[in-house]
């Protein structure tokens, strides 16, 4: 194809997206569109998979059967979300194995929030309430993104995510209304998860490199700063409601803006964690790679069994 032909195809492609048409796997697409989507979608999938680890940590020690079935169902959902997203990404021509390889070698990133430890039961509440809350804010606009398989996966994910946030808030509410020790535990979890949750919505707009192109492709509908403001504005009243304090002395309602002003985010910490120096980066990768390697004989055995069955069936057919 000549360069002129490619430019004309690219123009038509951008026009289709501007008209809100969806792009499907076999449609022509610019290489950059393909690569950007592989990157964002696979990292989204990785985040779901690694996201199971901090919560999986508490399944065996959930304080009641009610809490245990809920947490188990939530972690199973995260696995499901990872699988929807991996299969949607595969439609762009990358294999599942390549994606795992990128995750396991550290070439692909996952959400930095999962590199923080879950040291008390209240962390299950804080994750559901804040981390899933921030994730919903990020994901709802993606239900309308331009790539069909991604949009369809996100619709499924968003439907399920609301249970996650509600179960988390219920945990926090119960602890906040409990004994002084329980309330302290809830406040401590909020203190530790608040700032990482704000960081989770991404770098500020002035340093975010992908925003403009991503807006055009509807991979992003609102800027990081707008999403963060939305998250803060909706979460602060929820904390007030259960008598917990947001750990930000600069947090103040701004009548004029109709929004909360908030304090400085420690972006050095964010970049440290992204670069692999968070408290749990090594631990998470070790758990993930270990699970993959220990499962290898199972995967091989299942394949060998399937092949044997197939051969037997063919023999009977003759």
């Amino acid at each position: 194809m000549s360069e002129e032909q490619i430019r004309s195809l690219e123009r038509q492609f951008e026009e289709r997206i501007a008209r809100d048409e969806k792009i499907e796997p076999k449609d022509w697409m610019p290489e950059k569109y393909r690569q950007t989507h592989i990157r964002q979608m696979s990292q989204h999938a990785h985040s779901e998979i690694v996201g199971m680890l901090p919560e999986g940590n508490w399944i065996t020690r959930a304080p009641s059967l009610r809490r245990k079935v809920a947490l188990l169902a939530k972690v199973q959902d995260e696995a499901g979300h990872g699988l929807y997203l991996y299969s949607a990404t595969e439609t762009l021509g990358i294999s599942r194995d390549e994606m795992y390889e990128q995750l396991h070698t550290g070439k692909a990133k996952y959400s930095s929030i999962f590199n923080y430890p879950t040291i008390t039961w209240a962390d299950m509440g804080a994750i559901g309430w804040l981390v899933d809350g921030a994730a919903i804010i990020n994901q709802v606009p993606l239900c309308n993104t331009s790539y069909g398989p991604y949009a369809r996966a996100m619709i499924r994910v968003c439907k399920e995510e609301s249970f996650h946030q509600r179960q988390g808030f219920e945990i926090m509410m119960k602890l906040a209304n409990g004994t002084p020790e329980q309330k302290d535990m809830a406040q401590d979890a909020l203190n530790r998860w608040w700032w990482p949750s704000l960081m989770m919505l991404g770098p500020t707009d002035d340093v975010s490199v992908h925003t403009e192109q991503s807006m055009k492709w509807k991979l992003k509908r609102k800027s990081n700063d707008d999403l963060r403001q939305q998250f803060i504005d909706q979460t602060v009243p929820q904390a007030d409601l259960i008598g917990l304090t947001i750990p930000d002395p600069d947090l103040k309602w701004n009548e004029e803006r109709g929004s909360y002003d908030f304090g400085e985010i420690d972006w050095d910490e964010f970049w440290q964690v992204v670069k692999g120096h968070g408290p749990m980066n090594k631990e998470r990768m070790k758990a993930r790679v270990g699970a993959w390697e220990r499962g290898e004989w199972v995967r091989d055995a299942a394949m060998a069994h399937a092949e044997k069955k197939q051969v037997r069936k063919e023999k009977q057919a003759v």
């Binding site: 929807y84 299969s87 599942r96 369809r152 995967r299 394949m303 197939q310």
Partner: peptide, 30 residues
């Protein structure tokens, strides 16, 4: 691993009276 699990397309009928609809894919040995 010697061989990867193949990819399968999944179709689900949400209730009797409706058609099966494609809802995604997954990997499985058989």
């Amino acid at each position: 691993s010697t061989k990867n699990w193949p990819l399968w397309e999944i179709f689900v009928r949400s209730k009797n009276g409706l058609e099966h609809r494609h809802c995604g894919s997954l990997h499985a040995a058989d």
